Amino acid sequence: MTGLPNRGLAFDRLQDAMARAKRQETRIALMMLDLDHFKTVNDNLGHNAGDLLLKEVSRRLTGCIRKGILLHVWAAMSLR
């Protein structure tokens, strides 16, 4: 729905990045974001509103990161 890879692919890519960093003796950074009260949006405004919110957050975050940075949906349970 968001056009972003899911939790399974995110975990695979994270493991790959960690292994590469270990081999190259470098570091990686991981940042996780949570949408507070997302369930409230779904419950009070409906799943269509929740879907629109996720798509807009995805669009905005994608526009803020440089090429080569991985952006994934981690909390698949929030998606229907």
Rank of each mutant, 00 (worst) to 15 (best):
K55M: 08
D12K: 13
A17K: 15
N6C: 06
F11G: 00
F38M: 12
K67M: 01
R80S: 07
K67T: 02
W74L: 06
P5N: 10
R80W: 12
L79D: 08
A17W: 12
L53K: 11
Q15L: 10
L33V: 06
M31T: 09
S58W: 09
Q15I: 10
H47Y: 08
H72G: 01
T2I: 00
L61F: 13
F38E: 13
W74F: 15
A76H: 13
D36T: 05
G50H: 07
L45N: 12
L70V: 02
K39T: 08
A19F: 05
I65F: 08
S78H: 12
L71H: 14
D34A: 06
L54R: 09
L71D: 13
L14D: 08
G46E: 03
A10M: 12
H47D: 01
L54M: 13
D43K: 05
D51W: 05
G63W: 01
G3P: 09
G8A: 15
D16H: 12
L52H: 14
L79N: 07
G46M: 05
L45D: 07
C64M: 15
L4H: 09
L70R: 05
D36W: 06
K55G: 01
G3N: 12
G46A: 03
R80V: 11
A76Q: 12
P5Y: 15
D12Q: 15
L54H: 02
F38N: 11
E56F: 08
M18C: 04
A10W: 01
L35E: 03
M32F: 14
V41G: 01
A21P: 03
H37I: 00
S58G: 15
E25S: 06
R80A: 13
R66A: 09
A76F: 11
A76C: 11
W74S: 09
D12L: 08
R27I: 02
L71C: 13
L45R: 14
S78D: 13
G46Y: 02
I69Q: 03
D36G: 04
G63V: 02
L9F: 13
H47F: 14
T26Y: 04
C64F: 13
G46W: 12
D16I: 09
I28G: 06
R7N: 04
V73A: 00
L9Q: 11
W74C: 10
A21W: 04
L30S: 03
L35A: 12
R23G: 04
L61Y: 09
M18F: 10
L70Q: 01
M31K: 00
T40W: 11
M77W: 02
L61V: 08
G46P: 07
A17D: 07
D16T: 13
N42R: 09
L71M: 14
N42Y: 05
M1L: 06
T62Y: 12
A17C: 10
T26A: 04
R27W: 01
L35Q: 04
K55R: 14
L53M: 14
H47P: 03
L70C: 01
W74R: 09
I28W: 05
M31E: 00
G68D: 01
L30T: 03
L52V: 09
M1H: 07
H72A: 08
D51P: 06
